[in-house]
Every structure is written in structure tokens, then in C-alpha cells.
Design a protein around this nucleic acid. Structure first.
Length: 471
RNA sequence: GCCCCCAUCGUCCAGCGGCCCAGGACGCCGGCCUUUCAAGCCGGUAACGCGGGUUCGAAUCCCGUUGGGGGUGCCA
């Protein structure tokens, strides 16, 4: 019986959680849940300069929101500097690391002079410098040979040592770099599978060299495809719309986001894309992941989100949409409940909900003038309004429901001459001026249900106001 | 520049030597349904980058090429 897999998501709190990070976290989570393994979280906060502690909470909150729960407590690298220094000492004693007093500027200047490949030139390799404050520690990469691994997604990958420069393990400040801390922690945490983005492929031989020098064995690697934008560039927080928190705020459901993310770089064997997470856990396999970069397509995300929204029970929809209508507004909540199903079936994000029903809680409809002009110019607009006003006035509050309203509007349509060849009322034409008059918009939930929810008094007042605007 | 990775419709995924003159999904276009808009249903559009091999047979294997991406920090 092989040891149970252990994997981890290791975000750096230099920014909020973005969809690329979520994609990589999801791959780890799916792998762990599928294999019955353990999914750990490690906060890589070794860079005091760029570290923003408050962002750690955003990352944790978003992972929780997505449902990507981790096992045990998150590990913070800032608490473990002793561990890294001990490892560095061992490498120093073994001669696989050496002190270096070159400044980054010097390294770059020498590169400028000599040309050729950038990176460190091994200047301090054999100077026998004693480690001290202000001196960095570098790894002595073997002159010959190569380091490689069998990537679970990419197959064989190899790097010639000749192409690897002596990289920094400890900064001159004494703080560990990502390369050292990452490798040491994975060994310490007994990580068996390193699942991360393709942008880490180039750092992997260095990781392997450190682990080899430390004699700590090696985990398996799976480098996930990067998520790219329309220009096929790696998603960037600066220019792309990638904040997970923003997607939540814009009315995307966590389960839809997770389902969509799972579809990037991977697809279920049976082709059923939108499905319960449990089934995805069941089907997911790293060996099936596509190594090519994948475009993060907001349109398809929206489609998947719409499917999830429509699958919600009415009551559940109301609960989840409630935060998107004016809070504390009793009429808003009532409006949501009154037209729950009609609205649910028409939105792709919860943020689209208020514009469909705001006419119910506003004192006056917010009239879209372009829509009004068009409807007012339509044939029989004034007659339909008048007929509706007269007919609806006589319905009475107790019989104010969609069916009765429809009957009145059909009658008004006939009287206004809006009939087809068979003499049937043309409701599409008749409802246009009524809809704009009452809701302010040209499109929205079904009209009769909308008027039923609005009630006779407000409906009639709005129809009369609209009629008054006509010549 | 150098190193590494990648390569099927516009996009995401399927295809792992014959079932493929390539299938599904999003998008787009058209139709049906219909009180608007959606949803739903039906139909259409559209791809194996190129060149060599290997093989009876290649989208599938190999080589090359072209194109794209990533890395190249005392960031992670």
C-alpha cells in the first residue's frame, strides 16, 4: 500500500486570489480528494518587502468560498526561517553552497560587459568568502550533467546544468528565497505531489538540485497549463479581470466558478461539462490534463453560471440573489420573491437581477427614453394604454392576477386594431407600450406576472402617467 | 539571445494507429416555440500549422520546421 498522497497550494500573499491561483488550487484539491490524499495550504511569505499580510485573509476567504477546504492549519513560511537557515548551513558545510558578496547591480553590470546568457557568472564561487551579514548564499550548480524528472502532465523534462546559474538560497538579509523555502518545506511537510502552474517548470531543476543535496528525496511533479487572456498571454492582475472576489461580487456562484475552472486543461471522458463537483472529483485525473495553455473565457463562464442559477430551487435563488438587491429594502425582498422563477430563468449572473425587478421597489419607474420613444411611436400605443387603463380599473384588487390582466390586455389590443389575420390579438405589439410605461424598459420578466406583482394602484398610476405623455 | 514547454473548429474539451472526409460544449448564424427578453428544441458555421519519415494504414508515433507561450530577480 503506497503512502497516501499529500499535496499543497502555496500562494504568496502579494495579491488577492486570482483565477489562475484558484485553478492551480483546484487541481491540488481535486487530486487530493480523488485519491483520498491530503490537501495542505502554505503561505509563502518570505519576502518581507512585498508581503501584504492582510491579503492572506483574502486568499483564505476565497478558497473557503470556492469550497476548496484544506486539511490542517495553513503553514506560514515567515514562522519557519530557522528551518531554512539550518538547511542552508548544511549545504554550506557540504560545499554545495557558498557565500557571495556581489550586488545585483554588479551581477547585471558584468553580464552587460561580457554579453551572452544573463544570470550570475560564478564570480564568488571559489573566493572562499565566509558567510556574513550582507552576503548572500548561492547554490553551487554542478558544471556538467543534467537534472530532469517525469512530469505527470508533460512527460520527460531535462535541463543541462550548464544552462543553470548558481542561484541564491539566502538573501544578503539572511531571508530565504522561494527556491530554498519551497524545497525545504515540501520535504518537511512530506509533500508527495507538487501540482503547480507551468511558470514553475524552469525552477524545478533548481528545486531538485536542492532536494538532492539535502538528501530529502523527490516528489512527483505536475505542471498545470497556464490560464491565458484573449491575447494568449499569462493572466495578469494588472491588465486582466481575474480577481476571484470580483467574480463573487458580480454574481457568479462558487460552484459554477469551480466547475468552469475544472474544464480548463481538462475535460470529463463522457463530455458532460456541467455537473456536480462530486462527479468531477470522481473523474479527475492529472494524467488527462492537457499541457497547452487555456484561454479563460468569460463568456463560457457566464454560460455555466447561468446553468447553475437556473438549477437553483426558487427559495435558494431568492437567498442567493438577496444580497444583490437593495439591502434592508422590504419591497426589494418581496419583489424578488414575487418573480423569483421568472427572474431566475433570465439571468446569467446574480448582478443582473435588480435591473429586471427594480420597477417593483422604485416609487417611479426609471424610464429608458429610447425604449419609450419607440414604444410610443408604435401603432395603437395610445389606444392600448387607454384600453388597459379602463379594463384594469374594473378588475378589482381581489381578482388582480395574471390571467385577468391578460384578458384585459387582449381586449385592449383588439380595440386598438392590433390583430392578426385570424383576428387574434397581437400581444407582442400590445404589451410594448405597457411594459415601458410600467417597468421603464423594453425587456423584462413576463408582463402579466409583472403587473400582478406590482398591484393595481401603482400599475394604473404608471399607465395614466404614460398616457399623459402621449399627444 | 539562451533555456524549457506547447501545437485539433474563433474558444474550451474529446480523439491515445484503422470505428474520423474528426465528435461535444461556448460563441456566432438561421428556424421553431413565444406577451418582450431569456430558456428550451431543431439546423448551420468552423479545425487536425507546414514538411519529411515510420506503417498496409497517422489527427494519433518519430524528426525537422514554423508559430505560440513560459522562464531568464538577493519576486514567488
Amino acid at each position: 500500500m503506497p503512502e497516501a498522497p499529500r499535496c499543497r497550494f502555496a500562494p504568496s500573499p502579494t495579491g488577492y486570489l486570482h483565477v489562475g491561483g484558484a485553478h492551480s488550487a483546484l487541481a491540488n484539491w481535486l487530486f487530493a480528494r480523488h485519491t483520498g490524499g491530503t490537501f495542505l495550504l502554505r503561505i509563502e511569505d518570505t519576502d518581507a518587502e512585498r508581503n501584504r499580510p492582510e491579503l492572506t485573509e483574502n486568499v483564505l476567504e476565497m478558497l473557503r468560498w470556492l469550497g476548496l477546504t484544506w486539511d490542517g492549519d495553513p503553514v506560514h513560511q515567515s514562522d519557519r526561517f530557522d528551518l531554512y537557515r539550518q538547511a542552508a548551513d548544511r549545504l554550506l558545510e557540504a560545499g554545495t553552497a557558498y557565500a557571495c558578496d556581489c550586488t545585483p547591480d554588479e551581477v547585471q553590470a558584468r553580464h552587460g560587459e561580457r554579453g551572452g546568457p544573463p544570470g550570475y557568472d560564478g564570480h564568488c564561487r571559489d573566493r572562499g568568502l565566509v558567510p556574513a551579514e550582507g552576503r548572500a548564499l548561492r547554490f553551487r550548480v554542478p558544471d556538467s550533467g543534467a537534472t530532469g524528472w517525469t512530469d505527470l502532465i508533460r512527460g520527460e523534462v531535462r535541463f543541462e546544468h550548464a544552462n543553470l546559474e548558481d542561484f541564491v538560497l539566502l538573501r544578503s538579509s539572511g531571508a530565504p528565497t522561494f527556491l530554498l523555502a519551497n524545497a525545504v518545506d515540501d520535504a518537511d511537510m512530506a509533500i508527495t505531489h507538487v501540482i503547480r502552474g507551468e511558470d514553475h517548470v524552469n525552477g524545478t531543476p533548481k528545486y531538485l538540485l536542492i532536494r538532492g543535496a539535502l538528501g530529502s528525496g523527490v516528489p512527483a511533479f505536475a505542471h498545470m497549463p497556464l490560464l491565458v487572456n484573449q491575447g494568449r498571454k499569462k493572466l495578469s492582475k494588472r491588465r486582466d479581470d481575474v480577481s476571484v472576489a470580483d467574480y463573487r461580487a458580480r454574481g457568479y456562484l462558487a460552484e459554477a466558478m469551480v466547475n468552469y475552472l475544472a474544464l480548463l486543461g481538462w475535460g470529463p471522458p463522457d463530455g458532460v461539462e456541467v455537473r456536480p463537483l462530486a462527479e468531477i472529483v470522481d473523474l479527475f485525473d492529472l494524467a488527462d490534463v492537457n499541457p497547452a495553455p487555456a484561454f479563460f473565457d468569460p463568456q463560457k463562464l457566464a454560460h455555466v453560471n447561468g446553468e447553475y442559477i437556473r438549477a437553483l430551487e426558487p427559495a435558494a435563488f431568492v437567498e442567493r440573489a438577496a444580497p444583490f438587491v437593495p439591502p434592508g429594502e422590504e419591497r426589494a425582498r418581496e419583489a424578488l420573491e414575487a418573480l423569483a422563477v421568472e427572474v431566475r430563468d433570465r439571468v446569467r449572473t446574480l448582478a443582473e437581477v435588480p435591473e429586471l425587478i427594480d420597477f417593483l421597489w422604485r416609487d417611479e419607474p426609471d424610464i429608458d427614453e429610447a425604449a419609450w420613444e419607440k414604444a410610443a411611436r408604435g401603432k395603437g400605443a395610445a389606444e392600448v394604454l387607454e384600453g388597459a387603463i379602463a379594463g384594469l380599473s374594473s378588475i378589482g384588487a381581489e381578482r388582480w392576477e395574471p390571467g385577468a390582466i391578460r384578458t384585459v390586455v387582449e381586449g385592449a389590443a383588439v380595440e386598438a386594431g392590433l390583430v392578426n389575420a385570424e383576428g387574434r390579438p397581437q400581444l407582442a405589439k400590445a404589451q410594448a407600450p405597457l411594459r415601458v410605461a410600467v417597468t421603464g424598459r423594453a425587456v423584462g420578466p413576463p408582463l402579466f406576472e409583472s403587473l400582478a406583482a406590482l398591484g393595481p394602484d401603482r400599475t394604473l398610476a404608471r399607465l395614466q402617467a404614460a398616457r399623459a405623455r402621449l399627444p
